[in-house]
Design a protein around this nucleic acid. Structure first.
Length: 274
DNA sequence: TAGGCCATCTGGTCCT
DNA sequence: AGGACCAGATGGCCTA
């Protein structure tokens, strides 16, 4: 399944094998030149090898392939090197394809309109919206728990939050598999236990609802200013009207537990000195 | 036409 | 050693 078919019809994300092979041959020179420029050792090796072997500029492609696979593979034939290179490229394509599939899965559960006439969210917009949506749901859940505790705690009917004691509460949370659709498609539905500030303002927040009709502005990544994109200035004021923290990534500092979790769950980032 | 977004290739690094 | 992950480079497509 092509993850980019809705955007481009003339450019498949998984080209034919012949295309890959030709592309490899065509791009090996320019692609490698960029890599060489970033590595002094390789650059010196390139110059040294060229001097030793007496290769001309036209042989740089072959030379690049040899250098690309390090010194212990320099003795391999071009065919073997190309086979290895194609194998590595194929793996990388598959990896990126899987990443796109996961990104599509994330888009499917995000509160924005889906359909052939709606351009899908970009990757960065999907990630930012997902983050905001998680924060919004977390805030809504906490607020709901607090209200339920207040109601049943003060009346003495229940000691605290107890979903099984109230039939309606079992439907208050997102439905697994379609956590968003139920809310996004019925934004005006109020939960009997929730005030409008929670049941409507949070679930149909401007930043969420606005994305249901249009592709996010390119200004999404810029500072929220006068243009006010779908996740722009309107999101800034949501927290003011509801009294809840604004989930916008542009105007809210991530909660401590979020940032601490990110460091825990990503050991490569913490241990990596890149 | 400039800028955004994306796919792909590639080399380096880390992990198993 | 092989695979996964990452980031840089590059070129194509699309939109304002």
């Amino acid at each position: 399944m092509d993850s980019d078919t809705s955007r481009s019809t003339s450019r498949p994300s998984s080209p034919e094998v012949d295309d890959i092979f030709l592309s490899t041959l065509k791009k090996s020179a320019h692609g490698f030149s960029g890599a060489v420029s970033s590595t002094q050792s390789d650059s010196s090796d390139l110059a040294g090898l060229r001097g030793l072997s007496g290769l001309s500029g036209s042989d740089e492609e072959t030379l690049a392939l040899r250098l690309a696979l390090k010194k212990d593979r320099k003795l391999m034939s071009d065919g073997e090197l190309q086979t290895i290179r194609l194998k590595i490229n194929s793996r990388e394509r598959k990896r990126m394809h899987d990443l796109n599939v996961a990104m599509d899965g994330l888009r499917e559960v995000m509160p924005y309109a889906h359909g052939p006439s709606v351009r899908k969210l970009s990757k960065i917009a999907t990630l930012l919206l997902a983050r905001n949506y998680i924060l919004m749901l977390s805030n809504s859940l906490e607020e709901m728990k607090r209200l339920v505790s207040e109601i049943y705690g003060s009346s003495g009917h229940h000691g605290g939050f107890h979903p099984s004691a109230c039939g309606t509460m079992t439907h208050a949370g997102p439905v697994p598999g379609h956590p968003v659709a139920s809310h996004a498609s019925h934004p005006a539905v109020h939960h009997p236990l929730l005030p409008p500030a929670v049941s409507t303002a949070s679930l149909s927040a401007p930043g969420i609802a606005a994305v249901t009709s249009v592709r996010p502005h390119h200004g999404l990544l810029k500072a929220p200013g006068a243009s006010a994109g779908p996740l722009g200035s309107s999101f800034q004021h949501w927290g003011v009207s509801t009294g809840m923290p604004c989930p916008c990534s542009m105007c809210q500092v991530p909660p401590p537990h979020v940032s601490s979790m990110s460091t825990v769950t990503m050991p490569r980032l913490t241990s990596d000195s890149k």
